[in-house]
Write a protein that binds this DNA or RNA. Structure first.
Length: 573
DNA sequence: GCCGTTTTCGGCCCGACTGTTTTCAGTCG
């Protein structure tokens, strides 16, 4: 798939052109193409071969030609022309807070700054502060931006940011004059990683709230502090900072502001275009006809006036949500009846079958499956055939003595490097369900990861594929899987695909989940819990499924036990 | 560069904060 490298190429082109003071509209056109390619789940080369590139949103003749050129030659000549104008390290500096294209161009032209090292040098020498348009304050800001980038590193995973945001919201709730606090931004949309935390608060006294916010105990640094807006960083772990923005609005504008600061940016641009067409104006204070506010107290009021469905935050990405007649009822935690991928002390879990059963019952589930590791997963204390046979008896015995929740016998069976399974069919047949997962030789197995997984799916006892791409956010890239092929095979064999809810995994990711749903594939959302404390992380998986437009019908473990069993039996024949 | 039941040309979302500004440009979200 060339989608990702192509997206990066257009992003770089946009950066270069922006530094080169090209038309902002042209720059934005390329950024839009880059974002589209980043989220596009089909192979763009296929669309190119079929001559339908210009049917895709934001792609016209000029961009289509560049994509064709990239496919043919592996490069885009316009980008090479632009790269000849600036040092290679210059565009990266755009990522530093406080540094935009204009300042960057001035730094390059006047001082020859071409990268991070040059930037440090001109800051230290004092040369930067002497430049027109720069001063002691802006240099200090750039310097802090440079440090912040080093300290905050990459984006923060959703699962880490959410509890931080929730506790920060509690802090703000205790400030006098605060009526209401909500999470907005990419966190509310359930993005898998977030850049910063956006919080919104209702109050009549903005200055007092912002003051209390920027001065409270946990604050590491204050980035901005005005009458309605404050921006701080907190230290999440030694040497690592996370930015938190707070906006304060009055009650009449709360819905408008919540909508506005939830985004996504692309979704909002579309929404505002709708307002403009009706001769109205939409901003964070409301929807206005001239000076008169005609909506804004709630999000729903705005969408209603504009005649578009008020869709859940998770699908506000300008990816088709405006074409819906009604907002869809996406899957929610309450729909799930069980967790079908968990581990116990039999392999590498920290809790016993009985402890897991009690916790799953407490979570309100009707059933859950024990799926310990198979024999090849030596690191995970995988079970030999003999141990597995005894383990099956243990689970059946636990099921007998447990009231109020059904315990299913399962296993997480390794997909070996040639695509064969780690247990013989007799063992698999003795289980109620089987998770098949790749744990070893993620790169360079005897067969490609796609072929291995497809071969596993052809086994009638394999109920679903666990964490299909094997990625670990920020740690390990996904296996080189052809998702189109995988999804087709899942549909053909009647195998479900897992959305693994662990925040390090979120695998399948949202775009792939949507691709699977479109192909008629059943999803299953599980925590892969190794301890009872992990069971609540199911909500991360649900959010990911929602971002993939999943409804309860698309997810296997929303079914009743009876319906679940009959679905499994159908594949077994 | 893209796009079009008001347009194939002339638009393209909108406001807060900051700093260097003498009335506003740059940056950010």
């Amino acid at each position: 798939m060339i989608n990702q490298p192509l997206a990066s190429a257009f992003e770089r082109l946009a950066d270069l052109m922006e530094i080169g003071a090209e038309s902002g509209f042209r720059v934005n056109a390329y950024r839009r193409v880059a974002r589209f390619l980043d989220a596009y789940t089909e192979d763009i080369a296929v669309a190119a071969a079929e001559k339908r590139l210009t049917d895709l949103p934001g792609i016209g003749q000029a961009t289509a030609q560049k994509i064709q050129e990239f496919i043919k030659t592996g490069k885009i000549s316009l980008i090479e022309q632009w790269e000849a104008k600036f040092p290679p390290g210059l565009p990266d500096l755009l990522k530093i807070q406080g540094l935009g294209p204009k300042k960057l161009a001035a730094m390059y032209e006047k001082l020859g700054v071409g990268g991070v090292d040059d930037l440090r040098r001109v800051i230290a020498s004092g040369a930067l502060a002497k430049l027109p348009g720069f001063g002691a304050q802006s240099v200090k800001r750039i310097e802090e931006g440079l440090q912040f980038r080093e300290r905050s590193g990459d984006r923060t995973p959703y699962g880490l940011a959410l509890p931080i945001a929730e506790s920060m919201a509690d802090v703000i709730r205790r400030i006098p004059a605060v009526k209401r606090v909500e999470i907005a931004g990419s966190l509310r949309r359930g993005a898998e990683t977030i850049g910063d935390v956006d919080l919104l608060c209702e109050s009549r006294d903005g200055p007092a709230v912002v003051k209390a916010f920027v001065e409270h105990d946990g604050v590491k640094r204050v980035l901005a502090s005005g009458d309605t807006k404050g921006s701080i960083t907190i230290e999440t772990e030694p040497g690592r900072e996370l930015q938190i923005d707070l906006r304060v609005v009055p009650a009449d504008s709360f819905g408008a502001a919540w909508q506005y600061f939830t985004g996504s940016k692309e979704h909002n641009v579309r929404l505002r275009e709708r307002a403009v067409k009706k001769k109205w104006r939409l901003n964070e204070y409301g929807l206005f006809d001239g000076e008169k506010q005609i909506a804004g107290k709630t999000e729903e009021s705005i969408y209603k006036k504009l005649g578009v469905p008020c869709v859940p935050p998770e699908i506000r990405e300008d990816a088709g949500e405006f074409d819906l007649g009604e907002p869809p009822e996406l899957i929610a935690v309450k729909h799930l009846r069980g967790d079908l991928h968990t581990h116990t002390t039999a392999s590498d879990g920290k809790n016993t079958i009985d402890e897991m059963a009690a916790a799953a019952k407490h979570a309100g589930y009707d059933y859950f499956a024990v799926t310990d590791h198979s024999r090849s997963s030596a690191i995970a204390n995988g079970l030999s055939i003999e141990r597995m046979t005894r383990h099956i008896d243990d689970i059946r015995a636990a099921e007998k003595r447990t009231k109020g929740i059904a315990i299913l016998v399962g296993c997480e069976c390794d997909i070996l490097s040639d695509g064969s399974l780690d247990y013989p069919d007799e063992i698999l047949a003795a289980c109620d369900l089987v998770v098949a997962s790749v744990h070893s030789a993620q790169r360079g197995g005897k067969a490609s990861p796609t072929q291995r997984t497809i071969k596993a799916m052809q086994n009638p006892y394999v109920t679903f594929i666990g964490h299909p791409t094997g990625r670990l956010l920020g740690k390990r890239p996904p296996m080189d899987i052809d998702m189109g092929e995988l999804v087709r095979a899942a549909a053909d064999t009647g195998t479900a695909l897992e959305i693994n809810a662990s925040w390090q995994r979120l695998d399948l990711k949202a775009e792939h989940a949507r691709q699977a749903i479109d192909a008629g594939v059943m999803l299953v959302i599980n925590t892969d819990s190794h301890r009872i404390a992990s069971l609540p992380s199911i909500r991360h998986g649900v959010v990911t499924a929602r971002r993939g437009w999943a409804t309860a019908e698309n997810v296997l473990n929303t079914r009743t036990l009876r319906s679940l069993k009959s679905w499994i039996a159908k594949k077994r024949g």
